[in-house]
Computed example of a mutant assay.
Amino acid sequence: MNKKFKTGLLLAVLALVFAVTGCGSQEKAAPKVLKVGTDAAFAPFEFQDESTKEYVGFDIDLAKALGKQMGYEVQIQNMNFDGIIPGIESGNIDIAATGMTITAERSQKVNFSKPYYKSGLAVVVKADNATIKGFGDLEGKKIAVQIGTTGASEAKKIKNAQVREFNSSAEAFMELKAGGADAVVNDLPVNEYYIVKTGAKDAKIVGDVVSAEEYGIAIGKKNTELTEKINKALDELKKNGEYEKLYLKWFGKKPPQA
């Protein structure tokens, strides 16, 4: 074996080593993926933009901000609300950002982050309805709700109420508009957004807000490490002003002081 051949062979081996090392570096640099489940029919928290067909909303922006803070690539998966917790339990999604109220029953199945939004339930009726003035007037009435929500649970407690469950809040409002329901029971910010979108012509909110609620990011019960990461990232977003920026964008006001 002559000297030139040895040198050429050495260079070829070195090139192969660098190529393999380079591939390994690229694999290590691949971003971690965070699969986020949401029911994109709950504006202004999550919905599909009619023009771009992209999923948008406060929860969508918050999930992306949390992912960026933690160094994750966020993938949004749209699904029915009542299938989200099973999706977390099966591992099909990592977390849920979907206006989910923290409850004792849900906490038996999933972990929740620190609360990120305070809400409550409100009643929506047609603009010309003068008989229903709040929750106290819903006895025996036809009530439209979104399946699996706390609004649905609360409506079912009302004496003799005929509760109809729909896959989305939009469908519940359509039922009200069509005259198939006397009222819709849903989260206050969702109701407010609907009123704004309709220009307050078709419907109105009546009565007091009841059942104070807090939303949380839902995470797998055993995934305590991810729960800690999300809580830390949420704290950081509140400190650096990003959370307030998103809140202003979607609700037109600053978040309430803790």
Rank of each mutant, 00 (worst) to 15 (best):
Ile76Lys: 14
Glu192Tyr: 13
Asn186Cys: 07
Leu248Met: 09
Thr21Glu: 09
Thr101Asp: 01
Gln108Tyr: 09
Ala15Gly: 14
Glu89Val: 12
Asp208His: 09
Gly83Asp: 05
Phe135Leu: 14
Asn111Ile: 00
Lys177His: 02
Leu11Ala: 01
Glu242Tyr: 02
Phe112Cys: 07
Gly199Lys: 05
Gly241Asn: 02
Gly199Ala: 09
Gly220Asp: 07
Glu225Phe: 07
Tyr247Ser: 00
Gly67Ile: 05
Gly120Ile: 00
Tyr194Cys: 10
Asn129Pro: 06
Gln162Met: 04
Gly220Asn: 07
Leu11Glu: 01
Lys222Trp: 07
Lys221Ile: 15
Glu89Cys: 08
Gly120Tyr: 12
Pro189Ile: 08
Ala127Pro: 06
Glu50Met: 10
Glu105Arg: 07
Gln146Asp: 00
Asp94Arg: 04
Val163His: 09
Lys253His: 14
Pro256Cys: 07
Val33Ile: 12
Phe166Glu: 10
Ala200Ile: 07
Gly151Ala: 02
Gln26Phe: 10
Ser169Asn: 15
Lys114Thr: 15
Asn78Ala: 13
Ala41Asp: 04
Gly57Met: 04
Lys156Ile: 05
Glu213Cys: 01
Glu244Ser: 15
Val206Asn: 05
Glu165Ile: 02
Ile60Ala: 12
Gly199Glu: 03
Ser168Phe: 11
Gln77Ile: 03
Glu214Leu: 05
Ala161Gln: 09
Glu228Lys: 15
Phe18Gln: 04
Ala212Leu: 11
Lys141Phe: 02
Gln77Trp: 02
Met70Ala: 12
Lys64Met: 04
Gly71Tyr: 11
Ala144Trp: 11
Leu237Gly: 10
Ala233Glu: 01
Lys126Val: 03
Asp137Ser: 08
Pro31Trp: 07
Gly199Thr: 12
Glu165Ala: 14
Ala122Leu: 14
Glu89Phe: 11
Asp202Tyr: 14
Val145Leu: 11
Ser168Thr: 15
Gly37Phe: 06
Ala178Asp: 02
Thr38Val: 00
Leu121His: 13
Tyr72Phe: 13
Val190Met: 02
Gln77His: 03
Ala203Ile: 08
Pro255His: 01
Leu16Glu: 06
Thr21Val: 13
Gly216Ile: 05
Ile217Pro: 00
Gly83His: 05
Lys159Cys: 04
Lys238Thr: 03
Ala15Thr: 01
Glu242Cys: 02
Gly241Gln: 01
Ile132Gly: 10
Ala178Cys: 02
Gln146Glu: 02
Ile93Arg: 13
Met70Phe: 11
Ile205Glu: 03
Val196Asn: 15
Val56Gly: 06
Phe47Lys: 14
Tyr116Cys: 03
Lys254Gln: 03
Ala41Arg: 06
Glu175Ala: 15
Gly71Ala: 07
Pro256Tyr: 06
Ala144Tyr: 10
Thr227Met: 08
Lys204Gly: 05
Ser51Ala: 15
Pro256Ile: 08
Asn167Tyr: 07
Lys204Asp: 07
Asn92Phe: 01
Lys4Leu: 14
Ile219Glu: 00
Lys114Leu: 15
Phe135Cys: 08
Ala212Cys: 03
Trp250Thr: 04
Tyr215Gln: 09
Asp235Ile: 08
Gly87Val: 03
Asn80Tyr: 06
Lys118Trp: 01
Val17Asn: 06
Lys109Asn: 12
Ile158Thr: 14
Asp59Ile: 04
Gly148Gln: 10
Ala41Lys: 08
Arg106Asn: 03
Tyr55Asn: 09
